[in-house]
Write a protein that binds this DNA or RNA. Structure first.
Length: 597
RNA sequence: GUCCCCGUAGCGCAAUGGAUAGCGCGUUGGCCUCCGAAGCCAAAGGUUACAGGUUCGACUCCUGUCGGGGACGCCA
């Protein structure tokens, strides 16, 4: 179903072009800013009148005389300096509602031009536990994927995990020493067996200790360096086994967290740094052959136009260090080339924090210089603000003391559990546990989604888990109340499904019914808006407004105390609201909506 | 020094160039013999940091200033 806004924009723009004779003059139809201005407003008249040097109100009258909208709207009204206010007819609204009612897809319009969109998000570091700093990329990226898919795009998820680099030489060597010492043997089979007992928490500890040894112990450092070489050449199977074990162990840590958060990333979406390790040389060579990369202070650099450093000199994008090693810039270029040439991406979305903005700007510039990306592909860096502590300072990354994601989620669930216990002590234990998980994790995700992603994010349990206002529990509560009505209906011998499927036409009379209906028919539009800008908070705003409209309806319009067509219409509104909330929360945000809470 | 983000009610935050800038918390006052009060209704609270500019119209776009954060040659 095409969004009403789009239909109006199209039709009015056509008429506007005809009446004005102006080639490029959009109608600019928007949601009305105030209910008293109707449902939609046309803002383009003033601009057109300006170009024609005519009085906007008079021009609006001319336009209105030519408009044919009576199948959608009541007679248009001209207001203010030259706005045209549009009000949907009850018939149109009722029909639109019936169409959505019959549509399993809730009226979400699939795109006419599906794209292949690569979304790069989450990217945890191997051998480290996920901490709060990973949360935003992971959940924002996931929502973007889900929204784009719901609109019919082909989304390719890429989890660019940090599974490669010199620190793995260190880690492998340390792990080797540790297991060799534990087994009192350097026999590969024995070491491999000892590895079974190594867990992510140990690995993290190992990392600290390995780093210390690397700083202090000459012999260790050279052994670690040898491991790096072996990783690259693959000549020592034991080194690769140790490395693989580290990655596997890490995966065992983060996949359950994805599962708890309802993140759609799968193991097969992993395309980490190691995947590109053997492609880095050719990236550098290609850029050198094209005379784009040049030697500078011993390093290989690209100097894209328009970037300068503190001294005003050209800013290098370093792709190979003076010691011959490659950097993350090189890996990102290799990934970019792979995504464009092998995955055939039309659009690539990188979901990382805003501090990397310059890096991505330069990356995009270099990819364009190299001729990999042209105007037909869209490269986007979807940024988000920094995770801050309540003291307003960023979380530390390399040391301990950061909040582990797993622990955060546990606490969120526990806090939600306390509320459930207080509100609904009579529920069975199993239900309480389900609800606590849905509410606790939902609250954490939702509080992030509902913020403008550009803002810095102050981490606070109390704020994340507050359950008033624009929060996940508000939507979950609205949903649970609808489900409760449905259960009550069965107790009163009302067959909800039969009644719903027998409805051929509905009439809406109460203002709260009409308002709710108007929200319901805007769902697809709201997803589009959120997806274009990659802004989940647009979607949460919509869901919050929808739930608000439902709560007012719920207060004003009893369902089961009525009967006949009025009850049927209200049941339909309830059912559609429930389906929309469930779809938005569960399908697009990955937040569970329990039947009871 | 250059560049990026932020600055909106006491606090936390919204607002696709449109009309009288919204919501939550907090404060004050209403609403459960009525489908779930994790709810609804109402009141109070604003020079959208500041100064210019573009525009018929600016929280939104442009320039500058101030304040906060961040990035800027071999980390990721």
């Amino acid at each position: 179903m095409k969004p009403v806004l789009e239909i109006l924009e199209q039709r009015i723009s056509d008429t506007l072009a005809k009446v004005s004779g102006l080639p490029n003059c959009p109608a600019v139809v928007r949601m009305a800013t105030d209910p008293k201005f109707g449902d939609y407003q046309v803002n383009g008249v003033m601009a057109a009148a300006k170009q024609l040097k005519t009085n906007p109100r008079q021009f609006a009258e001319k336009l209105v005389a030519e408009l044919k909208l009576d199948d959608i709207c009541q007679a248009p009204e001209i207001a203010g300096p030259g706005f045209i206010n549009l009000r949907l007819t009850p018939e149109f609204l009722a029909n639109a509602l019936m169409n959505i009612h019959r549509d399993a897809n809730l009226g979400i319009e699939k795109t006419q031009a599906p794209q292949t969109v690569v979304v790069d998000y989450s990217g945890p570091n191997i051998a480290k536990q996920m901490h709060v700093g990973h949360l935003r990329s992971t959940i924002i990226g996931d929502c973007i994927c889900r929204m784009l898919e719901s609109l019919g795009h082909n989304v390719i998820r890429q989890n660019h995990i940090g599974d490669w680099g010199t620190q793995f030489g260190m880690l492998v060597q340390y792990l080797y020493q540790k297991t060799a010492a534990a087994t009192n043997s350097s026999d590969p089979a024995a070491i491999e067996k000892a590895l079974q007992n190594i867990h992510i928490a140990d690995l993290e500890d190992f990392y600290q200790q390995a780093k210390k040894l690397d700083d202090e112990d000459e012999a260790f450092r050279s052994a670690a360096r040898q491991r790096v070489v072996e990783l690259h050449t693959g000549q020592n199977p034991l080194t690769l086994t140790l490395w693989r074990q580290i990655v596997n162990e890490s995966r065992k840590h983060y996949l359950p967290i994805y599962q708890a958060l309802h993140i759609t990333l799968k193991a097969e979406d992993e395309r980490g740094e190691s995947f590109y390790a053997d492609k880095l040389e050719s990236v550098v060579k290609q850029l050198q052959d094209g005379s784009m990369a040049v030697e500078s202070d011993g390093a290989v650099c690209v100097f894209p136009e328009g970037f300068t450093n503190k001294e005003g000199a050209p800013l290098p994008f370093i792709i190979q260090k003076s010691d011959g090693a490659f950097l993350y810039a090189t890996t990102d270029l290799a990934a970019m080339r792979f995504r464009l040439k092998d995955l055939h991406a039309n659009r690539i979305i990188y979901v990382t924090d805003a501090r990397q903005a310059l890096h991505f700007k330069m990356l995009f510039a270099v990819a364009t210089m190299a001729g990999w990306a042209d105007d037909s592909v869209k490269l986007e860096h979807v940024t988000f603000g920094t995770m801050l502590g309540t003291d307003g300072k960023p979380f530390k990354t390399r040391t301990g003391g950061t909040v582990k994601l797993a622990e955060l989620l546990d606490e969120a669930i526990q806090r939600a559990r306390d509320v459930v216990e207080q509100k609904n002590p009579e529920l069975p234990e199993e239900k309480k546990a389900q609800i606590a998980a849905a509410v606790g994790i939902g609250a954490v995700k939702y509080s992030d989604y509902s913020n403008n992603r550009d803002s810095d994010y102050i981490f606070s349990f109390d704020k994340m888990l507050a359950m008033d206002g624009n929060t996940a529990p508000y939507m979950q509560y609205a949903y649970a109340r609808i489900k409760s009505i449905e259960r009550k209906a069965e107790g009163k011998d009302v067959n909800v499904q039969a009644e719903l499927s027998s409805i051929a036409q509905i009439a809406l009379t109460d203002p709260a019914e009409i308002d709710l209906a108007k929200h319901l028919i805007r769902y697809g539009q709201s997803i589009q808006n959120a997806a274009i800008e990659c802004r989940p908070n647009y979607l949460t705003n919509y869901l919050y407004e929808l739930s608000g409209a439902f709560s007012r309806f719920y207060n004003a319009c009893p369902v089961l105390q009525t009967e006949g067509p009025i009850r049927a219409a209200r049941l339909l509104l309830c059912d559609l609201t429930a389906r929309t909330i469930r779809h938005g929360m569960s399908q697009l945000l990955g937040i569970d909506v329990p039947e009871q809470m």
